[in-house]
Amino acid sequence: MSSADLRVIPLHALFKGSRWRVEAMRSYSVDQLIWFTRGQGRLTVGGLTRGYGAHNAVYIPAGTMHSFELTANVFGTAVFMAPDHDLPFPDHPCHLRIRDAADQAELTLILDNLQREVEGDHPARLRAAGYHAGLLTVWLERQMLNHEDALAEKTAARRLARRYSDMVEQRFHLHESVSDYAAQLGVTPTHLTRVCKESCGRTASDFLADRKIAEAQRLLADTRMPIKKIAEGLGFASAAYFTRAFQTRAGNTPMNFRKSSNIKAQNGTVKVS
């Protein structure tokens, strides 16, 4: 583990100059834990939308589709683990509302110690950071055993929404419709849409389109890939159709979005892949 692998980032730094990076439907290639200490909003993880508030801890495994509202009134910390870590984090997302003051203080202390070691220059700091990250897994495991308000798949509808979310994450770049996804899941498009609407407040087609546009935003902001290639890579029939779809959902053309993102990047936006 190196200091560049494990990152501890204040929440406000995640959307500095570029709010779409957290509000867009996307996934990261690393496990993350978010600790909200002030403010409130809504988050969508694995096809399920819930409200969050102060003293909420949310764990999101790598490759899990998610998005969350983040305003200037929301404070907290995000931890992004190393891609190759071998720590025993859960293999499914969870959302914990931590009401006990001692448990809140314990997590805050772990995160403070972890950040100090990652960003500091003390001897053996990387080994120490690994130990503190290990304590983070212990804290999370204990809280999951003691709380029933995790993002559990307690109903058939939630399980279907999660399966659809996982499938979209794996296949959103292909030229497949909601009907194609529904057929693979063994349900009708109408049923899939109804389940998505109940679980995350958006239709199945909106869910799929949001993921495609979020990936387009990432590619436009973080790469020099030609717009035509981006459109082809995301399964759009033509660059013109991609431009219309992008402008409808992002409120800007792909070219103008790229120019704007390049300007904002110069102001120090934090990137997490």
Rank of each mutant, 00 (worst) to 15 (best):
L151C: 00
S179I: 07
F36A: 05
A245S: 11
I98W: 05
R7F: 06
R19N: 11
P93R: 08
R142G: 05
I110R: 03
P83K: 12
V22Y: 09
L70C: 06
Q217V: 01
A156S: 12
G201N: 04
N73S: 15
A4R: 15
D103R: 10
G47W: 03
W139N: 03
E198C: 05
T269Q: 13
L145R: 01
A57W: 00
G130R: 09
P254L: 02
T269M: 11
S179N: 13
V138D: 09
A209C: 03
E69G: 12
D112S: 14
V8E: 02
A216N: 05
D91W: 10
A82Q: 04
P88S: 03
E153F: 12
V8D: 00
R218N: 12
T44V: 10
T188E: 08
R127I: 14
R171K: 13
A183S: 11
T203Y: 08
G251C: 03
F15G: 14
S67A: 13
K16L: 12
S273A: 15
F89G: 04
T243P: 08
M81V: 10
V45Q: 03
I98N: 02
E169K: 12
A124R: 15
Q266K: 15
Q266P: 12
A78Q: 11
Q266L: 15
P90V: 06
R7C: 07
I263Y: 15
A78F: 05
L70R: 09
D31A: 01
M81N: 10
G130F: 07
P90Y: 03
L160T: 08
S2P: 12
I9L: 08
V187Y: 01
D166C: 04
G130M: 07
N146D: 00
G120N: 02
S2I: 13
A250I: 00
T71Q: 04
K228V: 14
F172K: 01
D180A: 10
M81K: 13
N73L: 14
M167Y: 08
I9W: 08
M225H: 08
P93V: 02
Q247S: 14
R125N: 10
A250Q: 01
P123E: 13
R258V: 06
N146G: 05
F207P: 06
V22A: 09
A231G: 01
R99H: 14
P189T: 00
L33F: 05
H85Q: 07
Q184N: 12
P88K: 07
L185G: 03
A128C: 14
C94E: 09
G76A: 04
R125L: 07
E169D: 15
R7G: 01
A72Q: 13
D180Y: 06
L96K: 02
F172P: 07
T203V: 02
A239K: 14
D31P: 06
D222T: 13
R171H: 13
Q143H: 01
I60M: 04
R38M: 09
M81Y: 06
L185V: 01
E69L: 09
A156F: 08
T77R: 05
E117W: 14
V30S: 08
A156K: 14
N262Y: 13
M225N: 05
G201R: 08
G268T: 02
F15T: 15
